[in-house]
């Protein structure tokens, strides 16, 4: 809507004359537009019923255990092992995605090749493909007699399906678009002048990349990494088929929650769920701070 942006000038005089912005400490700034009460009321009610009250129930349910009960529920060896599997493999997958996602974004922005638009559209496949479909497809591919599982096993002696490696591959599939789609726009908007300056001052292409391009991209790369990581920790559908689900070895946290629910251990499931939300929240907070620190360092 370029037209709308352009009409900002001439209309602003006429339309805004009605809405005199009074310097009052009101809950909201006055406006001529109707429907504030209706839409805010509906939004808040819907949000509360669907999201806030049910999430509160999770906290209430796990707090019913008491602190010691909660602690002993989330520190059993099986739960701790699942924490390690979920967070460790999500980290590995997010790291893989940071490398290859950056490569894909770089190639899509900087180079020209046939079928580029098709490849660009394909990157969103993990967003669009239902996770269960991805799960059985990956599991069939990497099974001992699958298209990739068989050669990997025969040539390299590598077992993928029903091992932690299989989980990491599923999480890589799921998380890839997060990195590409966060880095791509930043790379696209990077002003060419800085690179030109570096080149004219005698920097090699690799030096320019290391000290001009990478620092500018790093915050976006970390954001993409964090999104991919967070998605991996919560992922269920694409993992359970390829994981093998052996307790302590290839059992992920979300699956453990499902198992506890199937045993009607509601409080235990709620405790693991709360702990999982808490740990992801803290990790995202740390990554956010790290990112702010990098931004301020780059700006300096």
């Amino acid at each position: 809507m370029v037209a709308a942006a352009d009409s900002d000038g001439p209309l602003a005089g006429k339309g805004r004359a009605v809405t005199v912005r009074a310097p009052v400490a009101h809950f909201r700034k006055p406006s001529v537009l109707p429907g504030f009460g209706l839409t805010l009321g509906f939004t808040l009610s819907y949000l509360s019923i669907i999201v806030l009250v049910p999430l509160a129930a999770l906290i209430v349910r796990s707090s019913g255990l008491g602190w010691s009960g909660f602690w002993s529920a989330v520190t059993t060896p099986r739960v701790l092992a699942a924490f390690e599997v979920s967070f460790g493999l999500s980290f590995a997958a997010a790291l893989t995605n940071a490398v290859f996602g950056f490569l894909v974004a770089w190639v899509l922005v900087r180079y020209d090749f046939p079928g580029k638009r098709l490849v660009d559209a394909l990157v969103d496949l993990p967003f669009a493909l239902p996770t269960a479909v991805a799960g059985i497809a990956l599991s069939a591919l990497y099974a001992p007699n699958g298209w990739l599982g068989k050669p990997l096993n025969e040539l390299l002696g590598l077992k993928v399906a029903f091992t932690p490696l299989g989980i990491a591959i599923a999480l890589t599939f799921i998380g890839l678009p997060f990195v590409v789609r966060t880095v791509q726009p930043i790379l696209q908007d990077l002003p060419p002048e800085e690179e030109e300056a570096a080149a004219s001052l005698g920097a090699s292409r690799l030096q320019t990349f290391g000290s001009v391009i990478l620092p500018a991209i790093l915050p976006a790369l970390v954001t993409g990494f964090a999104l991919s990581f967070a998605r991996g920790v919560g992922e269920y559908g694409s993992v359970i088929f390829i994981a093998g689900n052996m307790p302590g070895l290839t059992e992920i946290l979300p699956l453990l929650i499902v198992i506890k629910l199937e045993q009607y251990d509601y409080a235990g499931a709620a405790a693991v769920g709360t702990a999982m939300l808490g740990v992801s929240f803290v990790m995202l907070l740390i990554l956010n701070l790290l990112q702010q620190w990098m931004r301020s360092r780059h700006a300096r």
Partner: peptide, 10 residues
């Protein structure tokens, strides 16, 4: 940002 499993659990 909530795991799908937790979305069902609640």
């Amino acid at each position: 940002s909530v795991s799908p499993v937790i979305s069902g659990l609640i």
